[in-house]
Design a protein around this nucleic acid. Structure first.
Lengths: 243, 243
DNA sequence: TTGATTTACTACACGGCGTTTAGTGAGTGC
DNA sequence: GCACTCACTAAACGCCGTGTAGTAAATCAA
């Protein structure tokens, strides 16, 4: 994973710290591998330790608890997913708003189908009695996703605005930090735009989650088709013309 | 629960069978109670047995495995949910199609918010390595949900059809049993109608699931509002005029 | 009524889990 | 060279699902 390329660096990191970071990374890597075959529940401290030739207790030197490890994994996997969708969006020209929205959506599904266990890790509520704290770090990823979609909605707003003119929201209806970022990035977008972004998010998430959780495939044999048509309808509903 | 009112009945059920059925029902009831506080993972055979003054092994006389019990719970809870949404739909006159669709959606969310653990049980992929078989009985509930929504789409089809005229589907794209029921109930509905029904399902599910899984509330303070506006947009997108 | 049989259940064991605690040996810093 | 920190092991605790052997009571047949 980590290529060995910073030897002349002054010891901003001691040898101990480096070894420590490497072990920590290996724990996460093994955990992800175990999850890939066997589902999120296959992430057990004992199994990871076994795989690494350690005892389970040793992991407590790196993560306070199993849930802390899972949280770290979620953060990592989530940022992979975000990089994928953001990349797909940014690969299209800024004036092709419809294309960018569809690209985001298509990439979301493609990633989810390719990494179903990762998707479950992030969005399935799995993992024992997890979620109560729902770490700040996870919420940060959530915000980043929301910002990305909001940016797209802001681009689409000129054509979409008149469809949502009767929906009056206040900025106070949304998370403060998120609002601040959105308002500086898109000063002309009204609160209703943020609301639309979250609704679009739900609309994309719905079909993808149903499919990954196995709730769609027994009924419809071509969920990809279903999803793509939904995306087309989505951009149409935003006043854009799909490609 | 079960009132004691069928004494003159001939022993279509022996005393043994009755006791057996009662114990089975108690197991499920206790399991649901444990789940209500403590989440789906709190359903442990040992905890149930403890609560009932039995040993864990005794439960194997009633359910082959923990997953079998969970499946039975899912079926029960799912049919509760379905009864709720179908009831809400049928409480409105047949000609108020928009109202019936919104009622279905609103009731879905209301039920989910009132029974978050039940919703997780059904739709969260939780529960250890569950899901592989995804019992026939569960899929049956899925179909019933889909049929219900398809009925609504069929009612809306006169006004919605022209919006989906370019989407050509075949009945072969869908589950055979589902298709048969839909076609006899709504002979004029084309396959694209079934596709729209599933997409509507995904659209409703998306926001509700995000909220129940705690992924929406940190960002938006009024998810109900968000959801209701989405439902309004949904019926509008079907060519209907919301109330 | 009595004897055979079915049934519901207990007791116990196995292996796996997360987590804690006490102890050990090698690497680090003065 | 010495004190010390740190990564780790070993063993235990109390959970869990699951299988097996045994028991006592309910049921049925004569």
């Amino acid at each position: 994973m980590k290529s060995a390329t910073q030897p002349p660096q002054p010891p901003t990191q001691t040898r101990r710290e480096r070894l420590r970071a490497e072990t920590s990374a290996e724990i996460k890597a093994v955990a992800l591998r175990l999850m890939a075959d066997g589902g999120p529940d296959a992430i057990s401290l004992r199994a990871i330790a076994r795989e690494m030739g350690m005892t389970a207790g040793a992991i407590y030197g790196y993560f306070d608890t199993r849930d802390a490890l899972v949280t770290a994994l979620i953060v990592d996997v989530y940022s992979e997913l975000l990089a994928a969708v953001e990349g797909a969006r940014d690969r299209l020209p800024a004036d092709d708003v419809a294309g960018r929205i569809v690209a985001w959506g298509v990439t979301l599904r493609a990633w989810a189908i390719a990494n179903p266990e990762g998707f479950r890790l992030i969005y399935g509520d799995s993992l024992r009695g997890y979620e109560p704290p729902l770490q700040e770090a996870v919420t940060a990823s959530e915000k980043r996703a929301c910002e990305g979609l909001t940016a797209l909605i802001a681009e689409a707003w000129p054509s979409a605005a008149n469809r949502y003119c009767d929906e009056v929201y206040a900025w106070a209806d949304f998370d403060e930090a998120l609002v601040e970022k959105v308002r500086t990035a898109h000063p002309d977008l009204p609160p209703a735009g943020a609301a639309v972004a979250m609704r679009v998010w739900g609309r994309m998430y719905g079909l993808v989650a149903l499919e990954v959780f196995g709730r769609l495939s027994p009924l419809a044999h071509d969920p990809a088709r279903l999803y793509e048509d939904e995306l087309k309808a989505l951009v149409r509903d935003l006043g854009l013309t799909p490609a």
